[in-house]
């Protein structure tokens, strides 16, 4: 039997197909079907002459799978290496163990990569790219969206390609490397450190909440005029609460709001519930300010 070798064009086919990784995402098995789609061409080459192996390969890859999209190619690279091994095992030999390891490695990698990917890519890198673009766009320049797209896509296209190739070359050794070193923990911690600092900036810059409450003290003032006659005059002193808060620390209300929301989220509140809450708080404040003139929030 001639050896079946994964070529560069096979890698490229996996690469381009991997971009459809969420096309049929669903509540039951998430990104399962696109994962199989990625290997459509390669599997025909590897298992085209063996119906039984092809069936098992199809069944392997319609299993539940879900991780952060940018980290799918690296997992596909490792599975590609394994599939190549299975295809090159003589037909009469049993490949059950290898086949099982394909699914094991998918399950073992998708959890950690979802964690890193969500915080590093969705949580840190994309907000940085998009807020740079949006800051430019807010000044009325069409360069904003272009800058945002360029920053994101250089990473989007390059990261996917290089991790796919790395995954294929490393194969199963990647899992042992990841397990023996604390590289996953390191990357995700680094991502969180960077992400949290960026989040601090975002909190200060893009959440807007002020209070219009003021403390008014009415009293009398003794005024001595040029003739030396002292008279009583009414005086009103108004202290805006917002000025007091700004004196303590600028943007303290947005910070409190984000922490309040985070607290509720930890208690199990969903995003939808929190959005309803925001509309609720805003409505109460708007009603009060319209009918009584007391501006709680603005």
């Amino acid at each position: 039997m001639a050896e079946k070798k994964i070529t560069q064009s096979d890698i490229m086919s996996v690469y381009w197909r991997s971009f459809f990784d969420m096309a049929s995402i669903n509540y039951e098995r998430f990104q399962a079907l696109p994962y199989l789609f990625t290997f459509q061409k390669v599997f025909k080459k590897l298992y085209g002459d063996n119906k039984e192996r092809m069936t098992r390969a199809c069944l392997r890859h319609v299993e539940m799978f879900n991780t952060m999209p940018l980290f799918i190619p690296v997992i596909q690279g490792t599975t590609l290496a394994l599939e190549e091994k299975i295809a090159n095992t003589p037909v009469e030999e049993d490949t059950a163990e290898l086949e099982e390891s394909v699914n094991n490695i998918k399950v073992a990698l998708m959890g950690p990569f979802a964690g890193i990917g969500d915080s590093l890519m969705w949580g840190t890198f994309r907000p940085i790219a998009m807020s740079i673009g949006a800051s430019i766009a807010a000044n009325g320049s069409a360069a904003g969206p272009i800058v945002a797209l360029v920053i994101w896509n250089v990473v989007n296209f390059a990261f996917r390609y290089f991790t796919l190739v790395y995954g294929y070359k490393a194969g199963t050794t990647m899992l042992t490397t990841l397990r023996s070193s604390n590289i996953i923990e390191k990357i995700s911690t680094a991502g969180s450190v960077l992400g949290l600092m960026v989040l601090g900036v975002l909190t200060a810059s893009w959440v807007s909440l002020n209070t219009g409450l003021a403390l008014t003290v009415e009293g009398t003032e003794y005024v001595t005029d040029a003739n030396g006659v002292t008279t009583e005059q009414p005086k009103v002193i108004t202290t805006a609460l917002q000025e007091v808060l700004d004196g303590i620390h600028p943007k303290i209300l947005p910070l409190c709001l984000v922490m309040f929301m985070a607290g509720l989220m930890k208690k199990g509140w969903t995003t939808t519930k929190l959005i309803v809450l925001v509309f609720g708080i805003a409505l109460v404040s708007a009603v009060i300010s319209t009918f009584t003139g007391v501006v709680i929030f603005c």
Binding site: D118, S119, G123, T124, P127, T189, G191, S192, V193, G195, L196, M197, V198, L199, G200, V201, L202, T203, A204, W206, V207, S208, L209, K251, P254, L255, L257, V258, M259, M261, A262, L264, M265, K266, T271, L274, I275, V278, I281, A282, F297
Partner: peptide, 27 residues
């Protein structure tokens, strides 16, 4: 106020007690 919901979501996702100082520094 709406942005606070998304930021809270990111905060809960990334924050560990040990790492909170970095959020404070950024702010």
């Amino acid at each position: 106020m709406m942005a606070s919901v998304g930021f809270a979501m990111l905060f809960v996702m990334m924050n560990k007690p040990k790492l909170t100082p970095f959020y404070m520094i950024g702010f």
